[in-house]
């Protein structure tokens, strides 16, 4: 049996060998330019919320779209990272970047523990197992002493980046969040287009074939699970710094459902789909906030329509029209 450490890159990794395709480069640069001026056009907190969820959805899409694993419990990593980051900033008095890093590390560790158990089941069971573990994290968040129960951790200080730059104002904070989330999304892009990402796609398409080619499938699954949890945690930790709050909403199963919805609506397995999906869902929630529980109903309707008629998602349809991977 071939050693899995010496992964020979498949022929098809042209994208990673020659760098980013021109089209993707243009889109990323255009997006960056747009995000540079965005805080001067809309409420910066709203823009930061969109970016955090875009990173969250992109991290989730790494697992679902490229790993073919549907986790229904990604709120666990998002939420626990936000708790740990909030606790680190408020109680330990860490600077924002260290607080975010500790939240991310906590999510990575949690991803390792839950992932190594969950990948023992496949398909539909995998979804149920991850959901159940996430519910366990929810109950722990409700009961553990440091999480503040129903109140969560409130009025988290924004602090000073590297102990120097104050993030008290929204604009400096915005650029911190932009750097973190955009950097995270670029890293995810790099992972998808690496030899590792190619093996993931092979496993997604035909797992028995990948096994027979000598790949240690379970190790790949665990790695992608941990990576996905880590970036979800990065998003959650950043969000807690923006809202100065970590609460039960972030660990609740409805959050896990929301990130699935964002990815489905934008287009799973696409690069830009999760970003578009996150922007659409967060904008919708923003405008429909006054309608209360109708938001849940509308999200449910989008789910149903998306599954029945629109499985490619918005970006997936665009990609088909332009005949380019997006």
């Amino acid at each position: 049996m071939q050693q899995t450490d010496t992964v020979t890159p498949p022929v098809e990794t042209i994208a990673s060998a020659t760098g980013m395709p021109m089209l993707h480069k243009i889109i990323f640069l255009g997006l960056l330019a747009f995000l540079m001026v965005l805080p001067f056009m809309v409420y910066p907190i709203f823009a930061m919320k969109v970016m955090c969820f875009a990173l969250f959805a992109a991290a989730f899409n790494l697992l679902l779209g490229f790993g073919g694993l549907l986790s229904f419990g990604h709120a666990a990593y998002f939420g626990s990272a936000s708790y740990v980051a909030a606790h680190a900033a408020k109680v330990w008095g860490l600077t924002p970047e260290l607080a975010v890093l500790s939240g991310t590390a906590a999510a990575a560790f949690l991803g390792l523990v839950i992932g190594s158990l969950s990948i023992r089941r496949q398909g539909i069971y995998f979804a149920m197992v991850t959901l159940a573990f996430a519910q366990m994290i929810y109950f722990l968040s409700l009961q553990l002493p440091f999480t503040g129960g129903e109140d969560g951790i409130q009025s988290v200080p924004r602090g000073e980046l590297f102990g120097i730059f104050s993030l008290e104002n929204n604009i400096p904070l915005y650029f911190f969040v932009l750097t973190v989330t955009f950097g995270g999304i670029l890293m995810l892009y790099r992972i998808v287009n690496s030899p590792f990402g190619q093996v993931l796609k092979a496993i997604r398409e035909n797992e028995p074939r990948a096994i027979s080619l000598g790949y240690n499938v379970n190790r790949y699954k665990l790695m992608v699970f941990v990576l996905s949890a880590t970036f979800a945690g990065l998003a959650g930790a950043t969000k807690s710094q923006v809202f100065q709050l970590a609460s039960l909403t972030d660990v609740h199963w409805s959050m896990s459902g929301e990130v699935v919805l964002m990815t489905l609506l934008g287009g799973m397995g696409t690069i830009f789909g999760p970003l578009a999906g996150a922007a659409m869902i967060v904008t919708m929630q923003n405008y429909l906030a006054t309608f209360g529980a109708w938001v849940t109903v509308i999200q449910g309707v989008i789910f149903v329509i998306g599954v029945l008629l629109f499985r490619e998602g918005v970006i997936g349809v665009l990609a088909r029209w332009f005949k380019r991977p997006l």
Binding site: A127, V260, A293, G300
Partner: peptide, 18 residues
Amino acid sequence: HLYGLLLTFGLALIIQGL
């Protein structure tokens, strides 16, 4: 089969929300 899970999740949201 995962689409069945997603569809019924959406249905659950609708029923509970209503």
